[in-house]
């Protein structure tokens, strides 16, 4: 970074250079963002689509503009990769970005804002300005397409930076899970049915985790997963979420990451085991009852009187 080019007495410049340094020394698997060399108030970024959403595996590029009054005034965000959630080349309406200037605070940073942006992707747009409400399948198609290359935008220097960021994100972002929508719902249904027959209570729990009707709860889950990625040391959090929530959602998951697969296998095994246990217990009980009846009848005791005694 050409530090001598900028007035180091300018507190905004000082702060921004600090953030660049911090971003470079603590890179994340979920996003990457760097300023243009010619203008540190202009950044390029890419975020990985949040896991367990139709954006998973997608790489979404965008630009950030920092105001001269940064960090007192918020940065503004704009996506460049078609994604089905936010319009491209339109300032994004997040309360963390400058849509609601009164909510921004100097203790936030580009990093905080990117984390929030990822968490926002699977939320319901509620008709907010600059938001799109594409179908899941459409979004999934865009996610696959987004991996091909960074979008074409701006100067050659900017393009170069975007291509670099794209290469970096390709090494970090998991592939798009390859499953058709119908397949998923079929599998979901069977799995829940099996569970319900075997043990209704367990079946309910899993269904509750999977078909959470409350959109806010869903948001929170995603937000949690995001947070985990920021504080890499909180790894177990993510694991436990995968275990609870992706049980039936991603059963076939041929192309998905290994970690999640192991989780699924384990969970499936658990329910299989349960099925066998209960079947065995049921059978044993039935046999015992039958034997008892036979024994009592053969020894001449009135079965009906025992029933009455109960």
């Amino acid at each position: 970074m050409a530090e001598e080019k900028y007035n180091m007495k300018n507190p905004a410049v000082k702060r921004i250079l600090q953030e660049v340094k911090e971003m470079q020394s603590n890179p994340s698997d979920d996003y990457m963002s760097l300023p243009l060399e010619e203008n540190i108030f202009e950044w390029q970024f890419a975020i990985a689509g949040p896991p367990d959403s139709e954006f998973e595996g997608g790489i979404y590029h965008g630009r950030i503009q920092l105001p001269a009054e940064y960090p007192f005034k918020p940065p503004s965000f704009m996506l460049l990769t078609p994604n089905g959630r936010f319009e491209t080349q339109t300032k994004i309406c997040l309360s963390i970005s400058n849509y609601h200037p009164e909510h921004w605070q100097p203790s936030w940073s580009v990093r905080t804002a990117l984390v929030a942006l990822i968490a926002f992707m699977p939320t319901n747009p509620n008709g907010a300005l600059g938001s799109l409400d594409y179908k899941k399948e459409e979004r999934r198609k865009l996610a696959i397409k987004s991996r091909e290359a960074a979008p074409t935008f701006g100067s050659s220097e900017r393009q170069k930076l975007m291509d670099e960021i794209h290469q970096y994100m390709l090494t970090k972002a998991p592939p798009v899970p390859q499953l058709g929508a119908e397949q998923t719902s079929d599998e979901q249904a069977t799995n829940q049915e099996t569970d319900a027959v075997v043990h209704p209570q367990d079946g309910d729990d899993i269904a509750a985790g999977d078909e959470e009707p409350n959109p806010e709860a869903d948001d929170r889950v995603v937000a949690d997963v995001r947070e985990v990625h920021v504080n890499a040391n909180a790894g177990p959090l993510r694991v436990s979420f995968s275990a609870e929530l992706s049980v039936s959602r991603r059963v076939p998951a041929t192309g998905s990451s290994e970690q999640v697969q192991t989780q699924e296998v384990r969970v499936l095994q658990r329910s299989d085991d349960r099925l066998f246990t209960w079947a065995a217990v049921g059978l044993t009980l039935a046999i015992v009852v039958l034997l008892l009846k036979k024994f009592l009848r053969s020894s001449g005791v009135d079965v009906a009187s025992i029933g009455g005694f109960k």
């Binding site: 963390i96 909510h103 984390v115 806010e216 949690d224």
Partner: peptide, 20 residues
């Protein structure tokens, strides 16, 4: 446990989502 973990949501995100 999962419920417990849901509560520990990143506060920034929480504020952001609520205000949205």
């Amino acid at each position: 446990v999962a419920e417990e973990e849901k509560k520990s949501v990143n506060e920034v995100v929480e504020v952001a989502i609520e205000t949205s």
